[in-house]
């Protein structure tokens, strides 16, 4: 058995209803937990991009991606490991203003973690940090063990491949060529 590692599945799709369901079905059938998920419009107008992380093996990922890819409204699905990607997550931490000010190391903390203060009022402070999981988690641990964290939320991973262009653009150009040929 090959060992499981974290894979990032990147899926480009048409912007139609029910796609998330179709993608989730493929993960569910293979009993794969979705670790993180983020969806947004891609650089190409009208095309959406899903970024999903999951622990699996390469063999399974290969099959999963093919099964996702074959859905009619999916343009293209890929999988990558961390080495191929630049990736980031964003985390928000809500803290008690009173305790935050009392801890007396605000500047040090913000500098150490490269975090930002987004909001502050008399009851709470919201700070933001982006980074890899380990980095946002480290700040969470430090805050939890000192002044406590009232609320915490971390986004799904967003990722970009280290290659220059979105690989999809080549495929789209090819598809358009085919259509032209068909019409002529």
């Amino acid at each position: 058995m090959s060992t499981k590692k974290l894979y990032t599945v990147i899926i480009f799709s048409e912007n139609t209803v029910g796609l998330l369901n179709q993608i989730a079905i493929v993960f569910t059938r293979r009993q794969l937990n979705i670790e993180t998920l983020s969806v947004s419009p891609s650089a190409i107008e009208g095309i959406h991009k899903f970024t999903i992380t999951t622990f699996s093996t390469e063999d399974i990922m290969d099959k999963v991606v093919k099964q996702i890819d074959k859905r009619v409204d999916i343009l293209k699905a890929y999988y990558n490991t961390d080495e191929d990607l630049v990736f980031q997550e964003i985390a928000l931490y809500k803290l008690s203003t009173e305790l935050f000010l009392k801890m007396g190391a605000v500047e040090e903390l913000i500098r150490k973690y490269n975090a930002r203060v987004l909001e502050m009022n008399e009851s709470c402070v919201v700070i933001q940090k982006s980074g890899h999981y380990e980095e946002t988690q480290a700040l969470f641990k430090e805050l939890s063990s000192t002044i406590g964290v009232l609320q915490f939320i971390r986004s799904g991973r967003v990722a970009i491949t280290k290659s220059k262009v979105e690989r999809l653009s080549d495929m789209l150009a090819e598809m358009e060529n085919k259509l032209e040929k068909k019409r002529s």
Binding site: S13, E14, V72, D73, I74, L75, L172, M175, K182
Partner: peptide, 8 residues
């Protein structure tokens, strides 16, 4: 319909 961009 005989062409769908996302379907080959």
């Amino acid at each position: 319909v005989n062409y769908i961009r996302s379907y080959q």
